[in-house]
Design a protein around this nucleic acid. Structure first.
Length: 214
DNA sequence: TACCAGGAGAAAA
DNA sequence: TTTTCTCATGGT
């Protein structure tokens, strides 16, 4: 990817939307739980599920695993796909504890940590990279559907690239920069959700006008 | 009413 | 190997 234009898009997004203060969670473990629950789901519904876990004093790995499977699924109901997510969250908690918790995982270098996260059933590339960037502060760029859609429309991607190719493209273009990666992904999501008020269907006109380099 | 949301895994082709 | 299907609540 073109480094100058990739940076220009960030500058344009930041200029329009400002800092997004991501990830909205209190602890690294809560970031990881949220990463699983937000799969194909609006964040407002994830917050409801997180609140229900908190009501049940179940925002740590042991407490989540102590819940009966149907009780966990019921707590996750507002986030949708609750049966699937209950299994995925349980699998992640098993992995988390077996790996020595946050301390154990933090001791790993980024490549083996990413490999191990991807080995958990229900943790795919985007979820793993959410965790790596926002919970472990590793310089890993998070690619999501908005990233692909927006950068394809802007002509910076062809549209048929794989996840890894896009991720490495951003990381090479920007250089390792955790605060930048955090803000960039948050801004992409913010822009992706935005709906143009003047031209219905056009979500990029404000970005294009703010970013002459694109 | 229809569609989408900060995906991932299994099944089918 | 690539594409399609399934999971599900809640807001617009």
């Amino acid at each position: 990817m073109d480094a100058e234009r990739t940076r220009a898009v960030y500058d344009a997004l930041f200029g329009v939307y400002g800092p997004q203060h991501w990830w909205p969670a209190d602890t690294p473990f809560e970031v990881m739980v949220g990463a699983v629950l937000t799969q194909n789901t609006a964040w407002i519904n994830v917050e409801r599920a997180l609140a229900r876990l908190r009501e049940r004093a179940a925002l740590d790995a042991e407490a989540i695993l102590a819940l009966a499977p149907d009780a966990l699924a019921d707590a996750l109901r507002p986030a949708g796909y609750f049966n699937v997510k209950a299994r995925r969250l349980s699998a992640f908690c098993e992995f988390f504890l077996a790996a020595g918790g946050l301390e154990g995982l933090s001791a790993l270098e980024t490549p083996p940590l990413r490999r191990d996260l991807l080995g958990v059933k229900g943790v795919g590339p985007e979820t793993a990279d959410d965790m790596l960037l926002y919970a472990f502060e590793r310089p890993v760029f998070v690619v999501d559907a908005y990233t692909r859609r927006i950068f394809t429309r802007l002509g910076l991607l062809e549209g048929d690239e794989g996840y890894e190719e896009i991720r490495q493209g951003f990381e090479t273009a920007l250089g390792p920069d955790v605060p930048l990666f955090k803000e960039y992904h948050a801004l992409v999501v913010r822009h992706g959700k935005e709906r143009c008020k003047t031209r219905p269907g056009c979500v990029d006109c404000v970005l294009r006008s703010a970013c002459p380099a694109v």
